[in-house]
């Protein structure tokens, strides 16, 4: 167990290191950082001072080292555009994105997995065929278009639900939540459906494919040949074996929710990290882009670690390697 986790941790560090290197290169080599920080009328003398002060004259590896040390403490420099620390911007926006991603993840899992199991077990049924066709329509609808259609229908035509922003939020020290107000919850509905729909269809199709694979195995056939009732065969033997591969890929998918939120946030003007990022791209605000990249990688690594531990708990074959 320890060696397994250690190995995973090492891999995660390599991932974070690589991402940090990319982020640093963006910051250092895309455009001139000084030009981006100062106004037109700054003298050469002032520029040189700033360059020296920011350590941009140091050897590149030293700069990278400093970058990593700072990043580990949450310091990504100042935004070119807003002239405030990037970390302040990001942390202020983070709750919005995380709440949205969390609700969407729950939606996608709670609906996606049962539908996948159902369509695998009753694969020639009419309901299954309908669900499968709908899921193809689901993956064919770009998320931003889903958002637009929902806005058009529930916002513009029916006027039932708010179409932009988070509604009222309540602040807890540095965390602002929309979970505790009626308008906050109402505002969550359309964006979270938009974000969840695509992942839901993916998870459903994945669960179905894996389940069909497992249902064809010899041990399922042997379980039936022993006279075990369908309920036991399907849910005790087949489903558990399906979950092993599903956990990994689902973990990856959910990790990508945070990044996919960019689109949803943009459609619904949701004040999260994604909206910040997309504006940063339009403004070529490199520090924000770099910080966002590192942030996403961190969440991904975190989710992956959790997935690995789950994996380990489910599959005895992995545990056996320790003995």
């Amino acid at each position: 167990m320890v060696s397994f986790l250690f190995k995973r941790l090492l891999q995660s560090i390599i991932v974070m290191f690589t991402v940090a290197l990319i982020a640093f290169s963006m910051f250092r080599f895309v455009g001139d950082p000084i030009n981006n920080m100062v106004g037109q009328d700054t003298t050469q003398q002032e520029r040189d001072d700033l360059r020296e002060r920011l350590g941009l004259n140091d050897p590149v590896p030293v700069q990278f080292g400093k970058f990593i040390v700072n990043a580990a403490q949450g310091d990504f420099g100042r935004s070119y555009k807003y002239q405030v620390p990037v970390s302040d911007l990001i942390f202020a926006r983070m709750p919005a994105t995380l709440e949205l991603a969390f609700v969407s993840a729950i939606l996608a899992l709670v609906i996606g997995i049962p539908l996948g199991v159902y369509t695998a077990l009753k694969r020639s049924g009419i309901a299954s065929k309908f669900i499968m066709t709908m899921s193809l329509v689901g993956v064919s609808l770009p998320p931003f278009l889903i958002g637009i259609l929902l806005i058009l229908f529930f916002g513009v035509i029916l006027r039932w639900l708010p179409t932009f922003g988070r509604g009222e939020v309540i602040e807890f020290t540095s965390w602002s939540t929309g979970f505790l107000t009626a308008s906050g919850l109402k505002s969550l509905i359309l964006p979270s459906i938009t974000l969840a729909l695509f992942q839901m269809t993916l998870i459903m199709r994945l669960v179905r494919a894996e389940m069909l694979e497992v249902l064809r195995t010899d041990f399922v056939k042997f379980a039936r040949a022993r006279g075990l009732p369908d309920r036991l065969v399907n849910f005790k033997h087949a489903l558990k074996n399906t979950l092993v591969p599903v956990i990994t890929i689902t973990g990856l998918q959910l990790g990508s929710l945070i990044a996919f939120a960019i689109i949803t946030e943009s459609v619904f003007q949701w004040p999260g990290m994604g909206l910040l990022f997309i504006q940063a791209i339009a403004d070529v605000d490199i520090p924000i882009m770099a910080a966002y990249l590192v942030m996403i990688a961190f969440f991904f690594v975190l989710i992956n670690m959790i997935v690995d531990i789950l994996y380990y708990a489910v599959d005895p074959r992995l545990r056996a390697d320790d003995e």
Binding site: D218, F219, R224, A225, R226, G227, N241, D315
Partner: peptide, 22 residues
């Protein structure tokens, strides 16, 4: 189904895949 296992037992070819690994 009630006859399977109870009155007629079955043995397949490949022991490596005939048992639920979990």
């Amino acid at each position: 189904r009630k006859i399977r296992g109870r009155r007629i037992g079955m043995i397949f070819q490949d022991p490596l895949t005939s048992l639920d690994p979990l």
